[in-house]
Design a protein around this nucleic acid. Structure first.
Lengths: 381, 381
DNA sequence: TTGTTATGTTCTTAGCAAGAACAAAAAGTT
DNA sequence: AACTTTTTGTTCTTGCTAAGAACATAACAA
C-alpha cells in the first residue's frame, strides 16, 4: 500500500460516508465522522469535486460558527440504475449517491429472457452519460453471479451474459431476497447491526445472512436458500428436488396447499391474502392455517438462530403480515426451538421498514458498491 | 488513516505474511508477495527487527544471485501460549510466530473451574517475559467470549473473568470446534478457501462457518451450533432443550443410543470406536448403525450447503473415520438433500488434515490474532 | 576471468495527513 | 453598535511514507 493508495482509501471512506448517511453530511461533520482534520477534509472534498464525484452547496447556518457546506452528489457525477424483475413486470429506477431513488419506468414482460432487451430499451430511453452501473434484482438463485435459475419463470440455467452485450452498462445481478436484506441492513430495520438475517416470505422463503452490512453469497454466489433446509419435519417433496423443505410450511404456497389448491410460483398470493383476511375475521380454518404458517416460521427461525446467532432477524413480504398478526406465536415457537441457554437473549424479530421496494433499493446498493470501489476511484481521480 | 498508519498497516501485512507462511519467507520473497520494493521491504524488516518482532538469519543460497535472509521469529519476540481443555485433561503449548507449536505440559483436572488455576500454574512454570497472549480451546458455547456453558463439565454459566485475574496474560477463549475449523482454514485442508465449513464430530456435532479465513462468531459469540438444528427428522428430546436436533443422529452419542446405552458427554467414545471396528469386520448391526450415522451426517451437510453454499466442508474427530468408511454414503445423502441445480457442483467433503490438535492449533491462531493487530504494533514500534 | 543474475543499499522525489496559526462568518453579549 | 465567542475554512510547514533510479554486492555460470 502506497501513499497514493492512502489518498484513494480516504477518498473512498469519505464517499462511502456520504452515500451511507441518512441525510446529507456537511463537510465539517464528515471530517469529524472520519476523524480527519478540516484541512484534510478540504483537500479530499476538493479532489472529489474536481473528479466530478461530489458537489458542495452552502449549508444553512445552524447556531454559531462559520457556515459550512453540504456534500451532495455532483451534477456530472456517476448515477446508478436499478431494476427489479418480478413474475410479469419490471421496474427501472435511477439512484444517486446518497441513495435517493426515482422510479423511471415500469413494464410488463413475457417471462422469457427477452425481458432483458426490454430493460435495455428502457435504460436507453433514460440513459445519461453518467450512468455507471446497473443493479438487477430477480427472484431465484444466480450461480456465479450470472447463471440464472428462476423457477417461477421456468428458467433453468439462463446465462445473463448471453442476453446482455454491447451497449449495456456494467451490470450486477442478485437475488431479490438477498437484496431486500441488504436494503434493510443499509437503510432499514437492521441498520448498524453486525450479524443479522433477513427473510423474504412470498410463495416460499428466501433469505440472507448479513455480516457487517454485507450479504453473504457463498462460494458460488448461491448461498441463502434457507427455505430449502428441512427445519419443520415436512414429509412432502419440494419443487427444488429435496424432501421436507422449510418452505413447504411457510409462505403463500403453504397456505394454498393447506386449502387443497395446487401450489406454484406466480399464483396464490391473492389466496394467501384472503386467508389472512379471513383469519382476522375469525374464520376457524383460516386461523388454523395462519397459525401453522407462523409456527413453522418461528420454528425455523429458532433453528437458524442456534446455528448463526443473529442479533436480529427482519422479515419482508408476507412476513410483515405474519408479525402483525402472530408476533407472539412466532416468538414462542422460535424460543421453543432455541437451545435453552439462548432463551434469555433471543434474536429480535423485526418487520422490515424498507417496504416493497427492498429488492430495488438493494439493487441500487450493489450498483453503488460496484461504483464506489478504490480501483474505480483510482482511475477517476 | 494517516501516513503513520500506512507504515503500521504494511508492517502488519508483513508480519501476517510471515506468520501465515508454510515455510519461512525470505526477505526478497516477502517483498514480491506483498508487492513492495526491496528497499521498502528492507526498511520494514529493519523496523520490525528493531522492535524485536522479526529476526533475520542468512538464507542458504539457491541458484544465482546475491543470497538473502530468512525472516524468522525474533528471539526476544512475542510468544503465545495455547491451551486445550478436554473432559478431564488439558494441554498447554507454546507457539512462535509462524505457528511452530511445542507442547509444554499436560495435566488432569477435576472438572471444576479450578482447572483454570492449574493452567495458570502451568503457565507460570513456563512463563517468559515474552508471553503476549494465551488462547484457550474448550468444548461448548461461550457467550460474549467469557460466559462458559460447558455441558460435559456441568458448567451452566461460568464466567471466565471470575477465574482469571492478576497475573494472567491477555487471554482469549473459544469453542473447540470453531478453533479446529480455524486451524483447518489457516493451516489445513481448507487453506486458501473463501467460504467453507468445518464440523467436529465427537459426542455430537459442533461446527463453524469460515469466511475469508475467519470463523464467524455471531452477535453473542455463540454461533456454530449447527448440531442443534432439526435436520434429520428426529423426534427425540435433546439435552440442549430442543426436540429433533441433528446431533441426536450423528456422533458418538447417537451410536451409543443406537445400542441401548445412555448417551451423555464423557463416556461413549470407546463404544463408538468399537462400533466402527465391528462394522469393519462385517457385524451387521454395527454396520447399520454406522450407515445411519453417515447418512444423517450427509443429510445435514446437504441441508447446510443449500443455505450457506460452502466450497468445501472439512470434518474432524469421528468425521475422519466416517469419511474413511462411508465417503460414498455421505456424499450420496448429501447430494440427495442438495437442491437439484446444485448437484453438479456439490461441496467437497474433506477429512481435516491438522489432526487431533486442531483445537490447540486454533487456540494458537486466536492468540496470534490478538497479538498481530495494528493497534498493538503501533504501540510497540 | 568475465559475465549473469538476484538481492541489498543509498539517495532522491512526489505525495500524504497532521498541526499550528490565522482568517472568515455567523450568533450571542454588553 | 461594538465586542466576544464559536465554528469552520485556509495556508503553510513538517515529518513521514513508499517508489524509483542508480549502484553495490554476492552468489553462480560460461
Amino acid at each position: 500500500m502506497t501513499s497514493a493508495d492512502l489518498r484513494v482509501h480516504n477518498q473512498a471512506r469519505l464517499l462511502r460516508a456520504v452515500h451511507n448517511a441518512d441525510q446529507p453530511l456537511t463537510r465539517a461533520s464528515a471530517a469529524r465522522l472520519l476523524g480527519i482534520g478540516r484541512n484534510t477534509a478540504g483537500a479530499l472534498v476538493g479532489d472529489l469535486e474536481a473528479a466530478g464525484l461530489l458537489h458542495e452547496v452552502p449549508a444553512e447556518a445552524s447556531g454559531r460558527g462559520r457556515p459550512t457546506t453540504l456534500l451532495v452528489p455532483h451534477p456530472e457525477g456517476p448515477v446508478a440504475f436499478a431494476a427489479d424483475i418480478r413474475e410479469d413486470s419490471w421496474t427501472l429506477a435511477r439512484v444517486a449517491l446518497g441513495g435517493e431513488l426515482q422510479v423511471l419506468e415500469t413494464g410488463e414482460h413475457d417471462r422469457t429472457p427477452a425481458l432483458f432487451a426490454d430493460i435495455k430499451a428502457a435504460v436507453g430511453r433514460h440513459e445519461t452519460e453518467h450512468l455507471a452501473a446497473l443493479g438487477i434484482a430477480i427472484s431465484g438463485p444466480i450461480r456465479d453471479g450470472h447463471r440464472l435459475h428462476i423457477s417461477h419463470l421456468g428458467w433453468d440455467e439462463v446465462d445473463l451474459d448471453d442476453h446482455i452485450g454491447d451497449g449495456w452498462p456494467p451490470t450486477v445481478i442478485d437475488n431479490d431476497a438477498r437484496l431486500a436484506g441488504l436494503a434493510e441492513v443499509r437503510r432499514g430495520a437492521l441498520r448498524g447491526m453486525g450479524t443479522v438475517m433477513h427473510f423474504h416470505i412470498d410463495f416460499d422463503i428466501g433469505g440472507t445472512l448479513l455480516l457487517g452490512g454485507d450479504p453473504q453469497r457463498g462460494a458460488h454466489h448461491i448461498a441463502g436458500e434457507f427455505g430449502h433446509m428441512p427445519l419443520t419435519g415436512s414429509t412432502l417433496e419440494c419443487m427444488c428436488g429435496v424432501k421436507g423443505c422449510w418452505s413447504l410450511d411457510v409462505g403463500a404456497n403453504a397456505l394454498v396447499r393447506r386449502f387443497g389448491k395446487e401450489p406454484g410460483y406466480g399464483t396464490g398470493r391473492d389466496l394467501a391474502q384472503e386467508v389472512l383476511r379471513r383469519s382476522e375475521t375469525g374464520d376457524a380454518e383460516a386461523t388454523a392455517a395462519v397459525d401453522e404458517n407462523a409456527a413453522a416460521l418461528g420454528k425455523g427461525l429458532g433453528a437458524l438462530a442456534n446455528a448463526l446467532d443473529p442479533e436480529a432477524i427482519s422479515l419482508s413480504g408476507l412476513g410483515i403480515e405474519l408479525i402483525r398478526l402472530r408476533r407472539d406465536l412466532i416468538e414462542r415457537t422460535c424460543a421453543a426451538n432455541l437451545m435453552a441457554f439462548r432463551r434469555t437473549a433471543p434474536p429480535r424479530i423485526l418487520p422490515g421498514t424498507v417496504g416493497d421496494d427492498g429488492p430495488l433499493r438493494g439493487a441500487a446498493e450493489i450498483a453503488f458498491d460496484a461504483i464506489l470501489t478504490e480501483d474505480r476511484l483510482r482511475d477517476r481521480l
